[in-house]
Simulated scan of single mutants.
Amino acid sequence: MKALIVDDDFYSRNMIHEILRPVAHCDIAVNGEEAIEAFRRGLDEEEPYDLICLDLLMPELDGQQALREIRAIEKEFDVGPQTEAKVIVTTMLDDEKETHDAFFLGGATSYLVKPIDEEKLMTEVKSLGLL
């Protein structure tokens, strides 16, 4: 499995990386712009990401905007719904509007509230069929 961890907070990035490292090749981006560049590069090199853990609130380009752009790039590359990246939105906000927007406007697959718990993340990854 290939995973992209996108978070501006070092602790959160590191925690998710430590959890996923035994089961995935992990790349890290610290903002939405880096995430989009990494995602496009993965498709260009025919090594797409299976999983993206995406923080919603980040500087430069937030998670909502990055997710919309990632889904647009998948359309550009003719990636169908069955093979699109699974996106787990991770955020400190337990905000219904943010959740609604991530799912219905951005195409998120799942949602976890920080701090990320190993058991919850691994259960989610398994439920998405990635393990």
Rank of each mutant, 00 (worst) to 15 (best):
Y49F: 15
L130W: 07
L93V: 13
I16H: 00
I116G: 04
P59T: 11
V79T: 12
I28P: 08
L128N: 06
T99H: 10
L128H: 06
F103Q: 04
E46K: 15
L57K: 13
P115Q: 03
G42L: 03
K120M: 10
D50G: 10
M58H: 05
P48W: 05
L93K: 13
L54N: 12
Y49S: 10
L61F: 05
K126V: 02
T99C: 14
L131S: 15
T90Y: 04
Q64I: 14
I70S: 06
I19C: 09
L121D: 01
R13F: 09
E76F: 04
A35E: 08
M1E: 13
D117G: 04
L93A: 11
D50N: 14
D78E: 11
R68S: 08
L4V: 08
F104C: 09
V113D: 03
E69P: 01
D117V: 06
Q82I: 08
M122E: 03
L121E: 03
H17I: 11
E34H: 02
R41Q: 14
K120R: 11
D117N: 12
L20T: 05
L61N: 07
D117H: 06
T123C: 03
K86S: 14
K86E: 08
S127N: 09
L67R: 09
E96T: 15
M122W: 01
K120I: 05
E84F: 08
G106N: 08
D101G: 04
K86H: 09
D50L: 08
K120W: 04
R40E: 15
E60W: 06
V23G: 15
L128P: 04
P59M: 05
D8R: 05
G42Q: 00
E60K: 10
E98Q: 14
G42T: 01
K126I: 04
I28V: 15
S12N: 13
R40I: 02
Q82F: 08
Y11L: 12
L61Q: 11
L105F: 05
D94G: 02
E34G: 03
Y111V: 03
